[in-house]
């Protein structure tokens, strides 16, 4: 087993109202097979035994699919590896002696709750504004009634792969949630089932996004670069077209 020693500078903040600051920890004998979160577990075990308070961080599936984990590592959301969530980032990508600066995803719309834990409910509210097809349970037609070209289904799936982690927002200089919102609008506008509410959905979701205090897109492409699911900014372009189409045809 290979091990490395690291210096960690971690954002510590007691709660939303308290001021926060970086604290420095030295952590030795980190197995390179550990995931980043397991490295934090290891640090927390040490802190607990030393009578200190462990670092709070969100995590759930640890398989890169639930979107719960995430932090900035040396200024990059989810760390340096492309298409990787923090839980799937392994310590073999770092070298002994490295200093890692670890801080929460930052955005006006994501208040810090404690240490690396943030409140991303603004993203939920964007979905609530219209990120669905309004169909009640029961009474759906047979699943094969409408044929959907394989290519269309795959394109929709590319967009639907979004895990809602918020890395796109944290990486955008404008704090925009356009990749997140665009992905959902795109998925549903590509599918025949999404057509009846297409215009209302685009208008409502964009409005919700603005209301939550997210910024606008200025084609920096930072979101795409850090997205763990490689969601393309083409979906932002499609969202913009959907929005324009809807605003021109509004009654």
């Amino acid at each position: 087993m290979q091990t490395i020693d690291l210096t960690l500078q971690i954002w510590r903040q007691k709660n939303s109202d308290a001021p926060g600051d970086f604290e420095t920890y030295t952590l030795n004998d980190i197995s390179t097979d550990m995931s980043f979160l397991e490295m934090l577990d290891f640090l927390n075990e040490n802190l607990t035994l030393q009578g200190q308070e462990p670092v709070a961080f969100d995590h759930d599936c640890r398989e890169g699919i639930c979107g719960m984990c995430g932090a900035m590592v040396n200024g990059i959301a989810h760390g340096p590896e492309p298409e990787t969530t923090l839980c799937q980032l392994h310590m073999r990508h770092f070298s002994s002696g490295d200093t890692l600066v670890i801080e929460p995803f930052r955005s006006r719309a994501f208040p810090v709750k404690r240490d690396l834990v943030i409140d991303r409910s603004a993203l939920d509210r964007i979905i609530q504004a219209g990120g669905y097809i309004s169909v009640n349970t029961g009474g759906a037609p047979d699943a094969n009634t409408i044929a959907i070209p394989s290519r269309t289904a795959e394109l929709a799936m590319d967009a639907a792969a979004c895990i809602g982690c918020g890395a796109c927002v944290a990486s955008c200089p404008n704090g925009a949630a356009m990749l997140f919102t665009g992905a959902k609008i795109s998925q549903l506008s590509l599918l025949p089932q999404g057509q009846p509410e297409r215009k209302e959905r685009a208008m409502a979701m964009v409005m919700a996004m603005d209301k939550e205090g997210f910024g606008n897109c200025s084609n920096e492409r930072e979101c795409e670069a850090v997205c763990p699911k490689a969601i393309s900014i083409r979906h932002i372009a499609r969202m913009n077209r959907e929005y324009l189409r809807a605003s021109f045809s509004e009654e």
Partner: peptide, 12 residues
């Protein structure tokens, strides 16, 4: 049927 109606992008 329900999931397809919701826009779940199953493989085709």
């Amino acid at each position: 049927d329900q999931c397809v109606a919701q826009g779940v992008p199953f493989a085709r």
